[in-house]
């Protein structure tokens, strides 16, 4: 059982506050993704869990044991690095077996585990090679195999796929998810790529400026962003925002149209995903500025009341620049945010 508990963790680098009061519990065998733009503190948090960085405040517990004062090797973790960190002077075999050798395991046990994990990662043909003779993808596999060979309670991954090309990344994404699910370890995976996060995670922690703004399942993060930042960060293209004026009794006026909203009687922000709208007789009046046929669908960038507004429409529709469209948002997909606190209002 390797539940990870992060309690009130903060990190300062001199004057700079990299992490503010992080609290997060990750369940046993859960696949948790830390998602955020560069500089949001996600890698720092991972490195604190790994023991490569010391938290200024707070505690880290793994499997009911406080581990933040222990050296990395005593934490029951293994790690996959962004640049792989596959040792160039060792063969693939010795790279995978590095941690096992450090534990002074007997030779036959090292061989057994190295061969098993190499098989799992489909690199059993490469065991005698050196890292200089491998492609980026193969090096990545070695790095993952090295971590799995430790049979750790927790596996930490720092942007492991970011140096691979797009096609390979998609392949490895699925493979990694499968391998990790079978290994019964708890995984923490850092990425700035929301597609990676959505497709792999059991739960996503969206981080922004050293805080976790939302920790929820991928579909909840997508459908019900807890903060305006999440709504604008997740989704490609992200959510559209328009100003909403209260008309009393849970009604709001948005771009000349009346919508049912929360009971709050104050100006809010109306938000809708580009794909949650259809062309209709009544709705928001939009002027098409750019039309991009993307094959699967049609991305139309319009203007509504002088604001940028995107709609994802059926690719069979004929829309040209300058056309006036009437877009009807799906009522159950509309979200509301408080412009002062940035928090979602229900």
């Amino acid at each position: 059982m390797a539940v990870i508990e992060i309690k009130n963790v903060a990190k300062r680098f001199g004057e700079y506050q990299a992490l503010h009061d992080i609290n997060l519990t990750i369940a046993d065998q859960e696949f948790m993704v830390l998602l955020g733009a560069s500089g949001c503190g996600k890698s720092t948090l991972l490195r604190i869990i790994a023991g490569l960085e010391t938290a200024t405040e707070g505690e880290v517990w793994i499997g009911g044991k406080r581990i933040d004062h222990l050296p990395p090797k005593d934490r029951g973790i293994a790690m996959v690095f962004q640049n792989y960190a596959v040792f160039p002077h060792l063969t693939v075999f010795e790279n995978i077996g590095f941690g096992l050798r450090m534990q002074k395991l007997p030779n036959d046990e090292v061989t057994r585990r190295v061969e098993r994990t190499a098989g799992l990662m489909h690199i059993d043909q490469l065991l005698k090679r050196y890292s200089g003779e491998l492609s980026g993808g193969q090096r990545q596999r070695v790095a993952v195999a090295r971590a799995l060979a430790m049979e750790p309670d927790v596996i930490l991954m720092d942007e492991p796929l970011s140096n691979l090309d797009a096609l390979l990344r998609m392949e490895m994404r699925a493979e990694l998810k499968g391998v990790l699910a079978e290994s019964n370890t708890t995984a923490i995976y850092v990425t700035h790529d929301q597609v990676e996060a959505m497709s792999m995670a059991d739960r996503i922690s969206v981080m922004h400026e050293g805080r976790i703004v939302q920790a929820a399942s991928p579909i909840d993060v997508y459908r019900d962003p807890a903060e305006r930042f999440v709504a604008g960060f997740i989704g490609n293209p992200p959510m559209n925002f328009l100003d909403a004026t209260p008309q009393g009794a849970g009604q709001f006026l948005v771009a000349g149209q009346s919508f049912a909203g929360p009971s709050a009687n104050k100006p809010l922000e109306f938000a809708i995903r580009p794909e949650d709208m259809t062309l209709s007789e009544t709705g928001l009046t939009a002027t098409a500025k750019v039309v991009e046929p993307l094959g699967a669908h049609l991305l139309v960038t319009c203007e509504v009341e002088g604001k940028l507004f995107r709609a994802v429409l059926d690719s069979d529709l004929r829309v040209s620049m300058g056309d006036t469209l009437t877009l009807a948002p799906m009522q159950d997909r509309i979200r509301w945010f408080d412009p002062d606190t940035q928090i979602a209002v229900k």
């Binding site: 790994a50 990395p72 293994a78 040792f87 590095f98 450090m102």
Partner: peptide, 23 residues
Amino acid sequence: IPKEYYEAAEVFGASPWKRFTRV
């Protein structure tokens, strides 16, 4: 020598002396 090699060695259980001799 890239810093990541030392971090990897540390995570995988190499003592400072082992990091010196093995990395």
